[in-house]
C-alpha cells in the first residue's frame, strides 16, 4: 500500500529541509526549516491561499511557499493568488522575526513525468523530482538557492523519506488505514490499565492524529479537522466491515481489559493482512 503520489511528493520535499540520510538536504544547508504544513494564508484581497509547505531560512531572510502537484493540472485561480501573496502576509504566519526584510518565492513541486503538462500554465518556478535527480526550474528569489537548484542533484542511490508526512485528508481510505490502525494499536498500548473508551469517539481520533502526524501542530486547524475526520471515517469503515473488531471495541468500552486490547491488536493485524491480499489481487475500492 504505497502512499499516494501527493503524500510522496510532500515527503520528498520535506526531506530536502530535514537532513535525512541518503537524501539531499538542499534547503537545510541554506538554513531553511519547515515552518508551516498545510496552512491557510490570507492576502490583502481577502483571498486565501492553501500551500502545502512553507519553509523559511532566518539566515537568508527568505521563505519558500511550496505546493506539491501530483496531478497534471494547475489551478489558475490558486496560481493567481500565489502571485498576489506578499511577504507581510507570510511573516505573520511564519513568525520569522525578520520584519520587512523577509522575501519569499512561491513554487510548485512536481515530478518529471508531469512537468511538461504543468509548466506551460504558470510563471512560478518548479522543483522537479525525476528518477535520477532533483532540479529547480525558474528563479526562487535567492541567488544561493538558485545556484543550488539550477544544477541537477543526483538521486542515484538516494532513499526517499516516507515518515515525515504520513497521510493526507484526501488520501484513499485504504491507504490511510494502516496509519489509523497503527495509531489505534498505539492508543491501546497507552490506554491499558485506564478506564474504558470508545474507539469511535472524536477525542480518540484526535489522539491518534497527534500520535501519527509529527507536524500536526504546524497545520491549520481546518486541515487538522479534516485529518481527524479522515481517521473517524477509516475507523468507521473498519468497524463496518469486521465483526471481530466490533466485538472487541465493545469490550474496550467496558473498562480496562488487556485481553480485549490484545485481541483488538490482533484484529488490526489481520485487517491489514486482508488489505494487503486485496491490494495484491486488485480487489480494493479505488
Amino acid at each position: 500500500m504505497p502512499a499516494g503520489d501527493h503524500t510522496r511528493l510532500m515527503n520528498m520535499f520535506m526531506g530536502l529541509c530535514a537532513g535525512t540520510p541518503q537524501w539531499p538536504s538542499i534547503f537545510l544547508e541554506l538554513g531553511y526549516s519547515i515552518r508551516l504544513v498545510e496552512p491557510v494564508i490570507s492576502t490583502d484581497t481577502a483571498q486565501k491561499v492553501n500551500p502545502d509547505v512553507v519553509a523559511a531560512s532566518e539566515t537568508h531572510s527568505h521563505a519558500i511557499v511550496a505546493e506539491c502537484k501530483s496531478g497534471k493540472n494547475i489551478d489558475a485561480r490558486q496560481d493567481k493568488k500565489y502571485l498576489e501573496l506578499d511577504p507581510k502576509h507570510l511573516a505573520h504566519h511564519v513568525k520569522v522575526r525578520l520584519g520587512d526584510k523577509l522575501r519569499h518565492a512561491c513554487c510548485y513541486v512536481d515530478t518529471a513525468d508531469n512537468h511538461g503538462r504543468l509548466a506551460p500554465h504558470t510563471s512560478l518556478p518548479f522543483i522537479t523530482f525525476g528518477r535520477q535527480s532533483v532540479q529547480g526550474r525558474g528563479s526562487f528569489g535567492l541567488a544561493q538557492l538558485d545556484e543550488k537548484l539550477s544544477a541537477a542533484t543526483t538521486l542515484q542511490d538516494a532513499l526517499e523519506p516516507s515518515g515525515l508526512y504520513p497521510f493526507a485528508p484526501d488520501e484513499d481510505d485504504y491507504k490511510a488505514a494502516p496509519h489509523v490502525l497503527a495509531g489505534l494499536v498505539t492508543y491501546l498500548a497507552n490506554g491499558i490499565g485506564e478506564t474504558g473508551f470508545r474507539i469511535t469517539d472524536r477525542e480518540v481520533h484526535k489522539e491518534i492524529l497527534e500520535l501519527a502526524h509529527p507536524y500536526h501542530t504546524l497545520m491549520h486547524s481546518r486541515h487538522r479537522t479534516r485529518l481527524v475526520g479522515k481517521i473517524g471515517a477509516v475507523i468507521g469503515m473498519l468497524l463496518d466491515g469486521d465483526e471481530e473488531l466490533r466485538e472487541q471495541a465493545a469490550r474496550l468500552e467496558q473498562g480496562a481489559d488487556p485481553s480485549a486490547a490484545h485481541n483488538t491488536r490482533e484484529a488490526c493485524g489481520r485487517l491489514l493482512e486482508e488489505y494487503w491480499k486485496r491490494e495484491e489481487t486488485g480487489n480494493l475500492p479505488r
Binding site: 504520513p166 494499536v185 498505539t186
Partner: peptide
C-alpha cells in the same frame, strides 16, 4: 516504509 507502533512505550 514501515508504519509501526512501539507496544512497550505506546508510541507511533
Amino acid at each position: 516504509g514501515v508504519i509501526a507502533a512501539d507496544l512497550h512505550a505506546g508510541a507511533r
